[in-house]
Simulated scan of single mutants.
Amino acid sequence: MNGTLTGDDVGKTVVDAAGKELGIVAKVDGNRAAVDPNPSVAEHVFASLGIEGEDEEDYVVTESMLESVDDEIVLQGTL
Rank of each mutant, 00 (worst) to 15 (best):
M1Q: 15
N2L: 13
N2E: 14
G3K: 03
G3E: 10
G3C: 12
T4I: 06
T4P: 02
L5T: 09
L5Q: 08
T6D: 03
G7K: 13
G7F: 10
D8Y: 12
V10S: 05
V10M: 00
V10Y: 01
V10F: 03
V10L: 03
G11Q: 13
G11F: 05
G11M: 12
G11D: 13
G11S: 04
T13Y: 04
T13W: 08
V15H: 10
D16R: 00
D16E: 03
D16A: 01
A17F: 02
A18H: 15
G19V: 08
G19F: 07
K20L: 14
K20E: 09
K20H: 12
E21Q: 11
L22I: 01
L22C: 02
L22R: 02
L22E: 00
L22D: 05
G23V: 06
G23E: 11
G23R: 04
G23L: 00
I24E: 09
I24Q: 13
I24G: 11
I24D: 06
I24R: 02
I24L: 09
V25L: 11
V25R: 08
V28G: 10
V28T: 03
V28S: 02
V28Y: 03
D29F: 02
D29V: 01
D29R: 07
G30L: 14
R32Q: 15
A33I: 00
A34S: 13
V35W: 06
V35G: 04
D36H: 02
D36S: 08
D36P: 03
N38T: 11
N38S: 13
N38V: 03
N38Y: 07
P39V: 12
S40Y: 07
V41I: 14
V41M: 15
V41C: 12
A42N: 04
A42Y: 00
E43Q: 07
E43Y: 02
E43F: 06
H44I: 09
H44D: 11
H44C: 09
H44F: 14
V45M: 04
F46C: 14
F46A: 15
A47G: 06
A47P: 04
A47H: 06
S48M: 14
L49P: 00
L49A: 10
G50C: 15
G50S: 07
I51S: 13
E52P: 09
E52D: 05
G53E: 11
E54C: 00
D55Q: 07
D55M: 05
E57Q: 06
Y59I: 01
Y59N: 03
Y59E: 09
Y59F: 14
V60M: 10
V61C: 03
T62M: 07
E63A: 07
S64W: 01
M65D: 10
V69Y: 11
V69H: 11
D70A: 15
D70S: 14
D70M: 05
D70L: 10
D71T: 08
E72N: 15
E72M: 14
I73T: 10
V74E: 05
V74F: 00
Q76S: 12
Q76V: 01
G77L: 04
G77H: 00
T78V: 10
